[in-house]
Simulated assay, not measured.
Amino acid sequence: MERTTTPAEDFLDRALLEEAAKKSGLLWVRPEGVPNGRALWHAWHDGAVVVVGDGGEQPLHGLAAGGRAEVTVRSKDKGGRLTGWLADVTELAPRSEAWQGAVEELKSKRLNAPDTDTIGDRWARECRVLRLEPAGALTERPGAMPDGSHAAVPMPTGATTRRPIPAGLPKLLLGRRKG
């Protein structure tokens, strides 16, 4: 059931969305039809979130132009979910005016880049720059959060926690004390 909002609520929701996206270093993105989301670093540019990925950057599994994605932004100070929305995904054409603006914003957010001076050229050759534009009202906001945890089930692994050491091991390692 979609909630009805007043123009003032729409304005405040949009301000919350924009401010949260600008301040948070990470957001969670779950493409439509994909069971789990993933954390992505991003930038806010021209009314939307922009991300760069694939090639030598973060993987953008499942995000495709013309698709939709569920975006969740965490609070910068507490780290918990702050807001969420549905986004329309578009791919920006390399070296277009929109791409250039997005890349300038993304370059300022990219930490420890191996090729800071030529990163735009590498992104144009190897990567995709996607724009995630909010579509509709917020799906999560303070006072209207879902009840579930949204935690993903850990992947199966053969790794285990440490087991107790065998009772005789200390005697073997330290030897018998001669008295």
Rank of each mutant, 00 (worst) to 15 (best):
W28Q: 01
L173N: 08
P59C: 05
L12Y: 03
F11G: 10
V34T: 09
D13L: 07
D115P: 02
E126V: 08
R110T: 15
D77K: 12
R141G: 08
A93T: 11
P156L: 11
E91T: 07
R177C: 02
T6P: 05
R95Y: 03
D77P: 02
E18C: 04
G136I: 09
S75V: 01
K23V: 03
K22C: 14
E70T: 00
T160Y: 04
T116C: 00
E9L: 12
A159D: 15
L106W: 08
R162K: 13
T157H: 05
L63D: 02
K78G: 06
V29Q: 01
E19N: 13
A102E: 05
T83K: 02
R122D: 13
P134V: 07
R162H: 11
D117P: 04
W44C: 03
A102M: 11
L173E: 14
K23S: 10
A39S: 15
L86F: 02
L40V: 09
T116P: 01
V89E: 05
D10E: 15
A64K: 14
E133Q: 12
V34W: 03
K78I: 00
P59H: 10
R122V: 12
R177Q: 13
D88F: 04
V89W: 08
V29F: 08
H42E: 00
L40A: 06
E57H: 13
P7C: 04
G25I: 03
K109E: 15
D54Q: 11
L27T: 01
P94L: 04
A135F: 07
G56P: 01
R163S: 09
R176N: 10
R74W: 05
D46W: 01
R14W: 14
R38Q: 14
L132H: 03
L27Y: 04
I119T: 12
L60F: 04
E105G: 00
A21I: 06
L92P: 01
G67W: 09
G175V: 01
A151N: 15
G179V: 14
C127A: 15
T4E: 04
I165V: 09
W85F: 15
W85G: 00
C127S: 15
W99V: 01
R74M: 10
R95V: 00
G101C: 04
G120F: 07
L86S: 06
G66N: 06
D54A: 10
G37I: 07
W123V: 14
E91F: 06
R14L: 09
V103C: 11
Q100I: 00
D121M: 08
G179R: 15
D46P: 00
A39K: 12
E2T: 08
E2F: 02
K171T: 10
E126S: 14
R110E: 14
S24I: 00
T83P: 02
A20W: 12
A152Q: 10
P146G: 00
V129I: 12
P146H: 02
A15S: 13
D88H: 13
V29T: 02
V49F: 09
R122N: 11
G120R: 02
L111R: 13
R30N: 05
D77H: 11
T5K: 12
P146N: 00
P170L: 03
L63M: 14
M1R: 08
G79N: 07
A64D: 05
A152N: 09
V103F: 11
